[in-house]
Amino acid sequence: MKRSVPAACCATLLILLTSCGGGSSDTGTAETPTGTTGTTGTSTGTGTGASSSTLITLDHGGFTLQYDCSAHTAMRYEYTLDVDTGSAARPSAFTLDPDLPAGCAQQTSTSSYASVMPGWDRGHLVTSNHMDASAALIARANHMSNIVPQVSTFNQGIWLDAENVAECHRDLAPVQVVGGVVYDDISNDHFVSSHGIRTPDWFWKVIVTTDTSGATRAIAWFIPNRPMLNTLDSYLVSIEALEQQVGADRVGLGTLPLAVRQSKPASTWALPAGCGLG
């Protein structure tokens, strides 16, 4: 059965979304993995190794993934951003993740999803532009453990808009970004045979920061992975409502004040004047 979703998530009005930075079209190439063991990321799970049913935490230095070895996908991601000083270029190739422990399965191919089904991108969970502090870090953001199938117009439109909110507000105060995916519909699982991964049906993202007075504030979205979506405002939810959708443990923000978790901004935060999206 499908999950109940906020009424706002049913909007399917077509709009033109202008992209000025952050995410991009899926133009990267596939690369044959070397099979070497990575030395920069660490993983923790239950027991001494990851079995096919183990949910592990994969620490890539600048971001962490809660990774489901049996589903070959990250279920949750988290990272914190400070003032943007990075300029490392995004790699042209996608790679399998050498830091996953033995026995933890991942996608079987780095090839584009569009080669199987046109109109789909290799979409980042952790935004590559947010990981441009070093070449090594942005390369880890291009591992397939951080990549899932996204509708191209979703990836290059509304998802990019959400990425840009964090990218701009990081220059005002430190920003915590938490997000993840929800799988609840098999009808769009086009890439199981080719890549070994189902297609996420919902994406959620929370941004936590402080205002000019130092008070904590947060914004959250719950967005369907579909074309022809409305603006970000249509998918705003409170953290408390998001917890009801995906589980409070999965969201992992229970230490925030209740008032912050119950609040929902009237509209998506405006991008500060002069924000650079590079």
Rank of each mutant, 00 (worst) to 15 (best):
C104Q: 11
C275G: 13
L96H: 02
A71W: 10
L100V: 04
G86W: 15
T40I: 04
A220M: 03
H124E: 08
V5L: 08
Y183Q: 13
H195P: 11
G278R: 14
A105F: 01
V206G: 06
Q107V: 10
S25T: 13
I207Q: 07
E167V: 02
V260Y: 12
D97F: 11
P174R: 05
S238P: 03
F203V: 08
D132C: 13
A270E: 15
T212W: 12
A218H: 00
V206W: 02
V178W: 09
A30V: 01
A270Y: 11
S19V: 08
S115P: 05
S213R: 08
S263M: 02
N129G: 14
R226V: 06
A93L: 12
A30K: 10
T46V: 14
T153W: 05
S25M: 02
A30F: 09
D68W: 05
C20R: 15
I56L: 13
V83E: 12
L96D: 03
P101A: 10
D82G: 15
G247D: 11
Q156I: 04
L137S: 14
R3M: 09
Y79Q: 01
V151H: 06
R226G: 02
T255P: 01
D121P: 00
G180Y: 03
T231F: 12
P174S: 06
G123L: 06
T80E: 13
C20P: 01
G276I: 07
G45F: 13
I138W: 11
T110M: 01
A136N: 14
R3C: 09
A102C: 03
A114K: 01
G62C: 03
N146E: 08
P101N: 12
D189E: 06
T32D: 12
G23K: 09
C10W: 11
V181W: 07
T29C: 06
G103P: 08
G45D: 14
V83S: 09
T64R: 09
L81H: 00
N146W: 06
V260F: 08
D82P: 00
D189T: 04
T108F: 08
P33K: 07
L16S: 15
P118R: 12
L172F: 11
S145I: 03
A139D: 14
T36N: 13
R170I: 05
S152N: 04
F94G: 00
I186E: 11
I147W: 02
T153G: 10
F203M: 10
T44H: 01
C168M: 03
R198Y: 04
R122E: 03
I147C: 09
A141H: 10
H190C: 00
A139V: 07
A50N: 08
D201L: 00
S267Q: 15
D121L: 02
D161K: 06
I186F: 12
L258K: 13
T44N: 10
